[in-house]
Amino acid sequence: MTSTSLGADRVFVVPADLGGPSGGSAYNAAMIAALRADDVAVVERRVPGAWPRPTEDDLDALADALASAREVVVDGIVACAAPDRIADAAAAGVRVVILVHLPLPAEFGLSEAEADTLARGERAALEAADLVLCTSAWARDDLRARYDIAAEVVRPGVDAADPATGSAPPRLLILGAVTPRKNALLALSALAPLRARDWEVVVAGPARDAHPYVAEVEAAVEALGADRARVVGPVTGRRRERVWREADLLLLPSLVEPYGMVVTEALARGIPALVASGTGAVEALAAGTDAGGSLPGLALPADEPDAWTDALARWLDDADLRAAWRAAASDARSRLRGWPHAATQLRDLLRW
Results as ranks from 00 to 15, higher is better:
residue 301 P to R: 04
residue 74 V to H: 07
residue 175 L to T: 02
residue 116 D to G: 08
residue 306 D to N: 11
residue 255 L to R: 15
residue 267 L to V: 09
residue 350 L to A: 08
residue 264 T to Y: 00
residue 96 V to T: 08
residue 352 W to H: 12
residue 106 A to L: 12
residue 15 P to W: 02
residue 198 D to S: 14
residue 333 R to Y: 09
residue 333 R to W: 10
residue 43 V to C: 03
residue 50 A to E: 14
residue 67 A to G: 15
residue 32 I to Q: 06
residue 227 D to Q: 14
residue 270 G to V: 08
residue 215 A to V: 08
residue 13 V to S: 07
residue 302 A to T: 08
residue 338 G to Y: 09
residue 78 V to I: 15
residue 172 L to Y: 10
residue 61 A to N: 11
residue 214 V to L: 13
residue 302 A to G: 13
residue 106 A to R: 12
residue 77 I to K: 05
residue 11 V to I: 10
residue 176 G to E: 06
residue 196 A to Q: 13
residue 265 E to G: 01
residue 318 D to W: 09
residue 20 G to F: 03
residue 176 G to M: 07
residue 138 W to Q: 10
residue 77 I to Y: 07
residue 274 L to P: 04
residue 319 A to W: 01
residue 15 P to Q: 02
residue 228 R to K: 11
residue 62 L to R: 09
residue 15 P to N: 03
residue 61 A to P: 03
residue 345 Q to G: 07
residue 21 P to Y: 00
residue 245 R to L: 00
residue 263 V to A: 03
residue 261 M to P: 01
residue 91 A to M: 06
residue 109 G to N: 08
residue 342 A to E: 04
residue 144 R to Y: 10
residue 121 G to Q: 11
residue 235 V to R: 14
residue 254 S to K: 02
residue 104 L to V: 03
residue 142 D to Q: 15
residue 306 D to Q: 15
residue 54 P to D: 10
residue 147 Y to L: 06
residue 26 A to T: 14
residue 232 V to I: 15
residue 47 V to Q: 11
residue 282 V to C: 13
residue 4 T to F: 01
residue 206 P to E: 13
residue 7 G to I: 11
residue 283 E to G: 02
residue 341 H to I: 10
residue 191 L to N: 10
residue 153 V to E: 06
residue 43 V to E: 14
residue 149 I to L: 08
residue 310 D to L: 13
residue 236 T to C: 00
residue 68 S to V: 00
residue 124 A to T: 13
residue 92 A to H: 01
residue 45 R to D: 04
residue 166 G to D: 05
residue 43 V to T: 15
residue 6 L to T: 12
residue 324 A to L: 06
residue 58 D to Y: 06
residue 175 L to I: 03
residue 334 S to Q: 14
residue 65 A to Q: 11
residue 97 V to G: 01
residue 171 R to I: 02
residue 67 A to M: 00
residue 77 I to D: 06
residue 344 T to P: 00
residue 242 R to I: 03
residue 166 G to L: 01
residue 192 A to H: 14
residue 207 A to Y: 10
residue 223 A to W: 01
residue 231 V to G: 00
residue 117 T to L: 13
residue 149 I to D: 00
residue 324 A to N: 07
residue 204 A to M: 11
residue 45 R to S: 14
residue 246 E to V: 12
residue 146 R to S: 04
residue 243 V to M: 08
residue 131 L to R: 15
residue 97 V to R: 08
residue 248 D to N: 14
residue 198 D to G: 05
residue 334 S to H: 11
residue 270 G to L: 09
residue 132 V to G: 07
residue 351 R to T: 12
residue 201 V to Q: 06
residue 184 A to N: 06
residue 114 E to I: 08
residue 288 G to Q: 05
residue 187 A to N: 09
residue 311 A to V: 09
residue 286 A to T: 04
residue 118 L to H: 04
residue 210 A to W: 02
residue 223 A to M: 05
residue 225 G to R: 07
residue 161 A to D: 11
residue 80 C to Q: 13
residue 114 E to Q: 15
residue 59 L to D: 02
